[in-house]
């Protein structure tokens, strides 16, 4: 690991928190998208059977 000097704690915590939040945002978005897509697909299939 290269030397970040006296600001190492500030830099690593800033980058760590940022990456964690961005990854969480992407995962939440992706997970919700998959869940809704599945639920809609199931609902459309039920609707087409009922017709």
């Amino acid at each position: 690991m290269f030397d970040l000097g006296k600001y190492a704690d500030a830099i690593l915590s800033s980058w760590g928190i940022t990456l964690a939040l961005l990854i969480a945002l992407v995962l939440v978005t992706w997970r919700r998208s998959v869940q809704v897509k599945k639920a809609l697909h199931a609902a459309e299939q039920r609707a087409s059977k009922n017709v």
Partner: peptide, 30 residues
């Protein structure tokens, strides 16, 4: 670009939710 990608995915999810709610209401009405 990350914002554009995420907002497109999330808007698509929102629109699917609208359709899902309509289908669920139609099912309940039946």
């Amino acid at each position: 670009l990350l914002f554009v990608a995420l907002v497109l995915i999330r808007t698509r999810t929102e629109l699917r939710l609208v359709r899902l709610h309509r289908l669920e209401i139609r099912e309940r009405m039946k």
